[in-house]
Amino acid sequence: MDSSKLSRIVREEFIDEYGSIICNDIQKEVFGKSYNLWDPQEFEAFEEAGGHDDKCPSVTGNAAKWTAKVLLDEGIEPTL
């Protein structure tokens, strides 16, 4: 399977879980609203809501998990 098909599988996982692949949309799903991270007050609110404590790490962890599953399902083993 080529990389575009593999990435499409991960994309579909994002859509199934969060309704979108777009950060602002994912923020709305996870936080109930999106934040303008360029605005210092909104960035502070984002942090206070757990942005970098558990919310975003959970999203990126899911992305890593889905990617690893796709690669392993295709027999693509990691090399160190």
Rank of each mutant, 00 (worst) to 15 (best):
N62S: 13
N62T: 04
L71F: 02
I15E: 15
K69M: 03
G61Y: 10
D53P: 09
L6H: 07
R8D: 05
E77R: 13
E13W: 11
P57V: 02
K28V: 08
G61K: 02
S7Y: 08
K33L: 07
G75I: 04
I9A: 10
A64G: 09
S34N: 13
P57G: 07
A63R: 02
E48G: 07
D2P: 14
N36M: 01
G61N: 05
D16E: 12
A68D: 08
D53A: 15
L72A: 10
N24M: 10
A45V: 03
R8Q: 13
S7H: 09
W38V: 02
V70D: 02
E47C: 14
T79N: 15
S4P: 00
W38D: 06
K33N: 08
V70C: 04
F43A: 06
L80S: 15
T79W: 15
D16F: 10
D25M: 02
I9M: 08
K65C: 09
P78K: 10
L72V: 08
L80Q: 11
A63M: 12
E12L: 11
L71K: 01
I26G: 05
V30T: 01
D16P: 02
I21H: 06
V10G: 04
G51Y: 04
H52R: 15
P40G: 00
G61Q: 04
G50E: 00
D2G: 10
F14W: 09
F43T: 01
K69D: 09
I22Y: 13
F46S: 03
L37G: 01
L71Q: 07
K55M: 05
G75W: 04
T60N: 14
E13I: 06
E17W: 09
L72N: 13
K33S: 12
D2Q: 06
V10Q: 03
G75T: 00
I76V: 14
E12V: 10
K65S: 09
A68T: 13
E44D: 12
G61I: 03
F31R: 07
E44N: 12
F46Q: 00
R11D: 09
P40Q: 03
F43C: 07
D53C: 13
F31I: 06
C56W: 10
D25E: 11
W38F: 12
C23Q: 14
I26K: 00
E44R: 13
K69P: 01
I15S: 05
G75E: 00
S3V: 15
G75H: 07
M1A: 08
C23L: 15
E17Y: 11
C56F: 09
D53F: 15
S4Y: 11
E77W: 12
Y35L: 01
A45P: 04
P40H: 02
I26N: 02
R8N: 08
I21P: 00
D2F: 06
E12T: 10
G50K: 03
V70M: 05
Y18M: 06
N62V: 03
T60S: 15
V59L: 10
H52V: 12
M1I: 11
N36S: 02
L72K: 11
E44T: 12
E48R: 14
I15K: 07
K55Y: 06
S4N: 10
V10H: 01
R8W: 09
C23E: 15
D2R: 13
S34T: 05
E17V: 11
V30W: 08
